[in-house]
């Protein structure tokens, strides 16, 4: 190796060191700047039930075969109606749990008698597919105590939720993982 080559290598190394130093500084600055505005919490996806229009896309657009979105019941808001418009088809033949009377395509809502004339409605999450038929019915004629929520035992927390992309009313939001639900009848972020 002659002397000319040595200076050549040194010059390239010098430039490389400079570039590396610049990259490190830049990256450090970026990370510092972002850390200032970051949160220790991770973010998860959640539906604001007051923005949800119950379009039914949650059942079809989740990356999971059976959606991570499930119907959720705010029992304190429920009217415990005998004729529940979230449970029964419009103009049901009879107020019984017969499949032909039910709105829910998978029979995921359980109707139990409490006392006259009140019935309690509970959701079987393992059956619910998040189609929002009951949500629509309850919102239209009832108290709106049935609503959709992303259930975090199932959600894989995609970086960009594919239901959020399809949501017609932008009801999906990134929320801190320490407050992962937006429940009706409570302070939404609480």
């Amino acid at each position: 190796m002659n002397s000319k080559d040595t200076t050549h290598v040194t010059r390239r190394d010098f430039i490389k060191n400079g570039v590396r130093g610049g990259c490190l500084l830049g990256l450090g600055g970026l990370v510092g700047f972002l850390t200032n505005r970051s949160q220790a919490d991770d973010t998860v996806w959640q539906i604001n039930p007051y923005e949800c229009v119950a379009c039914g896309k949650c059942a079809t657009h989740c990356v999971l075969d059976i959606s991570a979105v499930k119907c959720t019941h705010a029992f304190a808001m429920c009217g415990y109606c005998k004729l529940c418009t979230g449970y029964f088809e419009q103009q049901p033949n009879a107020l019984t749990s017969g499949a032909e009377n039910q709105l829910c395509p998978t029979g995921a809502i359980l109707r139990t008698f409490v006392e006259d004339p009140y019935y309690e409605y509970t959701i079987d999450e393992s059956l619910c597919v998040g189609c929002a038929k009951c949500v629509k019915g309850c919102k239209a004629f009832g108290n709106g105590s049935l609503f959709l929520q992303v259930h975090h035992d199932r959600c894989v927390d995609c970086n960009e939720c594919s239901i959020a992309v399809a949501c017609p009313s932008n009801a999906f939001h990134r929320v801190p993982s320490s407050h992962p639900y937006m429940l009706k009848g409570t302070d939404l972020m609480g």
């Binding site: 991770d42 959720t72 019941h73 415990y80 409490v114 709106g144 927390d157 993982s177 320490s178």
Partner: peptide, 30 residues
């Protein structure tokens, strides 16, 4: 209450029925 209307007031149960808790599974721990 946002946009929802309490059309039917939640009942006071004579039988002392207690309301169930809404199921909300926690996300993966931080």
């Amino acid at each position: 209450m946002g946009y929802t209307v309490q059309r039917f007031p939640p009942p006071d149960f004579d039988s002392g029925h207690t309301l169930p808790r809404t199921v909300i599974p926690e996300p993966r721990a931080l």
